[in-house]
C-alpha cells in the first residue's frame, strides 16, 4: 500500500488521504478539529528571509540596553545579560538559568538551526545531520519564550512607574520585533520541510 498520500491526525489518530487545497485553505480533522495540513506552500525564500532578519534583530536586541531606570539621580541601564547575571548571583540562581535558556539560548539556537537547515535546502541539497537539527528545532519550540519576556518588561515598567523614571531603549524594540519574526517563522509547518528534504534526497 502506498502511504505517501496519507496523513494521520496527531491528536486523534484518524487517517486521511491528502487532497490538493486552494490558496489559503486548511485541512482540518473532522473528528477532533486539529489542523492536518494547509496549502501555505512552503516558501523557502520567505522563511530564509525571516530567519536572517531574526538573527540580525536578535543580535541588536542583546547588544543594546533594554531600558533605563533613574532613581534619586542614579541612572542604570540594563541589558538582557545584566538581568541574567545579577539574578544568577542572587539566592534564586535557578531563575537565571531558566531565563537564560528561554530568552537567549533557545531563541538563538532556534534561529541558527533554521538558517542551517533552510540555506542548503534553498540551494538544492540536504545538509549533513539534517534529522538531528530538525528534531532539535521541534523540541525547542515550546521552550523559547521571547514573547512572554516582552510582556514581562511591560509589566515591570508599569510597576516601576510610580517609583522611578523608566524609559525604553533600543534593546526592547529589538525584542518586540524579534517576537514578531519568531512567531512568523514558527507558523511554518516543519513537517513540510521534511517532505521537501525527502524530495531532494531522491
Amino acid at each position: 500500500m502506498d502511504t505517501t498520500a496519507l496523513v494521520i491526525c496527531e491528536h486523534c489518530d484518524s487517517v486521511y488521504r491528502r487532497m490538493p487545497l486552494h490558496h489559503g485553505q486548511t485541512a482540518c480533522c473532522t473528528q477532533c478539529g486539529a489542523v492536518l495540513y494547509s496549502n501555505r506552500s512552503l516558501d523557502l525564500d520567505a522563511m530564509l528571509a525571516l530567519a536572517v532578519a531574526a538573527m540580525i534583530v536578535l543580535l541588536i536586541a542583546n547588544a543594546y540596553p533594554l531600558m533605563q531606570v533613574e532613581l534619586g539621580g542614579i541612572t542604570r541601564e540594563t541589558t538582557l545579560w545584566n538581568i541574567i547575571l545579577i539574578t544568577f548571583d542572587s539566592k534564586v540562581g535557578l531563575i537565571a538559568v531558566v531565563s537564560a535558556l528561554s530568552i537567549f539560548f533557545f531563541p538563538l539556537l532556534q534561529i541558527a538551526l533554521y538558517l542551517y537547515v533552510l540555506l542548503p535546502l534553498r540551494l538544492g541539497h540536504v545538509p549533513p545531520a539534517f534529522a538531528g537539527a530538525m528534531h532539535a528545532l521541534r523540541q525547542m519550540q515550546p521552550w523559547s519564550m521571547v514573547e512572554v519576556f516582552v510582556l514581562g518588561v511591560l509589566v515591570s515598567v508599569v510597576k516601576l512607574a510610580g517609583v522611578a523614571t523608566v524609559s525604553a531603549e533600543t534593546g526592547l524594540w529589538g525584542f518586540g520585533v524579534l517576537t514578531l519574526l519568531i512567531t512568523a517563522l514558527g507558523g511554518f509547518d516543519l513537517r513540510e520541510l521534511w517532505d521537501r528534504a525527502a524530495e531532494l534526497g531522491e
Binding site: V69, G72, T87, S90, I95, V98, I103
Partner: peptide
C-alpha cells in the same frame, strides 16, 4: 502553557532594575 512564566521574568527584571543599595532594593523570594 508558557505564558505563566510572565511573573518569573518580572521578578528577575525588577531585581536587576531596582538595585540601589539601602535606598531601594528588590530581592527575590523563595
Amino acid at each position: 502553557g508558557h505564558w505563566s512564566m510572565l511573573d518569573v521574568f518580572v521578578v528577575a527584571l525588577l531585581m536587576t532594575l531596582v538595585h540601589f543599595g539601602k535606598f531601594a532594593q528588590v530581592e527575590a523570594g523563595a
